[in-house]
Amino acid sequence: MIPQTFDYVRARNVGDALKALAAKDGTKVIAGGHSLIPLLKFRLAQPARLVDIGHLDELRGVTEVRRGAKIGAATTYRDLLESKLLAERYPIIAEVTSGIGDLQVRNKGTIGGGLAHADPAADMPAVMLALDAQLVLRSKRGKRTVAAREFFQGAFSTAMAEDELLIAIALPPLPRGAGTAYVSFEQAASGYALAGAAAVVKRSRSTVAHCTLAMTGISDRPYLVRAAEQLVGTQGLPDAIEHVAAQAAAGVEVNGDIHAPADYRRHLAVVAARRALQKAFVRSKK
């Protein structure tokens, strides 16, 4: 497996990378390379040039931003797992990350790379939707922020322009006392999600005050389940959760393949949604 030839530059800083992208000459960004290099090997991607941002300290690490957090786009999954701040404020990040790829992939793969790749069966995008993450994009033209909920536009397709670079992921604070959970069913070979559900539930005394549910692996992109709002105001009893979970794939065009025919995948969506909601509910503070 040998990629097509390409040129390679190692960016000295973000400005360097933006300059390379501004040329719009078929330059692609590489960080961990764990989404891109397999495509290069199969010659499914044939960029003229790679600009490497993997080693840029300014793009790595997790920082505290008021009650939230900012994650550099080139932060590896391993670094996410080792972040105390994330463990404290967003335990769902460790929960989802420990199941991404494998030990070696997590050592090198980056959160930004994974999100920009926009695999419709990737786990992390669902969590980003559930947390209402804001993706910070930069180009020579300037900087803008796109909500994760707007970012994913289809299979392997995002809101990023050709000259833009994902530089950080900003996580707004979770509602106080909220519980979170990510539940997925893995495809046995690839480990990608046949169906994955990320849930955020906040209780206020005996009723649910806030509920978000995001799904991945079901369709051509991750999505929010609008029906999650219907849990708000309920006591979060099994029936109410089931009612919401049952709508996890409602109105969605569900993928079918050799690993999970569409009817089964739709069913798994419901099960994953229910389990995620239940876990998040139990984990939320009364």
Binding site: M1, I30, G33, P38, D52, R78, Q104, V105, N107, K108
Partner: peptide
């Protein structure tokens, strides 16, 4: 799998130029 700066990495999914 090899160790890169002490961490296990799949060397078939890394360019040699990245390892400089």
């Amino acid at each position: 799998t090899v160790l890169i700066d002490g961490r296990a990495v799949k060397s078939c999914t890394m360019l040699a130029v990245q390892a400089e």
